[in-house]
Design a binder for these strands. Structure first.
Length: 158
DNA sequence: GCCAACGTTGGC
DNA sequence: GCCAACGTTGGC
């Protein structure tokens, strides 16, 4: 079992929307490194930190899990989609997705700002690397536990 | 809205 | 294969 952090802009798709729908095909990933994670490294049942990006308080807002195998992202074949990729064919799809299932919302947002203050304890964390723009990134078991412990601490005061 | 960082594209 | 130009991400 592995752990991941997946970013979403709350204006596009929020943890509240995932809570309502229960599960969601995670379409629109158009980065090869993230695609390789989806294809090669994710497994059914993996844990997901749901992260809100590009918003007033970026941070981790919920927990989810991977609930499907990798499958072609249908939006790559749809000319009307923002994610349309004319270079991809159904015979050899370039972009994949997995479905993500809602687990729970966190009791409080664990903000990026707070995570930065725990950078030393978190160790090498892809989210905190300079210039990081990956929308799907790996989380170690130790980082997963540490972050979930933060949920119940008064982290904002530190 | 700004802009640093990064990935992709395309000319050569 | 190099690299400048461009587009995107995402914090601030």
């Amino acid at each position: 079992m592995r752990y991941w952090l997946m970013k979403s802009e709350p204006d596009e798709f929020s943890i509240q929307q995932l809570a309502q729908r229960g599960r969601e095909p995670w379409n629109g990933v158009r980065n090869y490194q993230a695609r390789n994670f989806i294809r090669d490294d994710m497994q059914y049942g993996d844990g997901v930190l749901f992260y809100h990006s590009n918003c007033a308080m970026p941070g981790i807002v919920g927990l989810a899990e991977i609930v499907s195998e990798a499958m072609p992202d249908p939006t790559q074949f749809d000319p009307a989609s923002d994610y349309f990729d004319p270079g991809s064919t159904p015979d050899s799809p370039r972009w994949l997705l997995r479905e993500v299932g809602f687990k729970r919302a966190l009791q409080r947002t664990i903000a990026l700002d707070e995570l930065k203050r725990h950078a030393e304890a978190l160790g090498d964390f892809a989210l905190l690397r300079r210039g990081n723009r990956l929308s799907i990134l790996p989380v170690s078991a130790a980082q997963w536990r540490y972050i979930l412990d933060l949920e119940h601490s008064v982290g904002a005061a530190r």
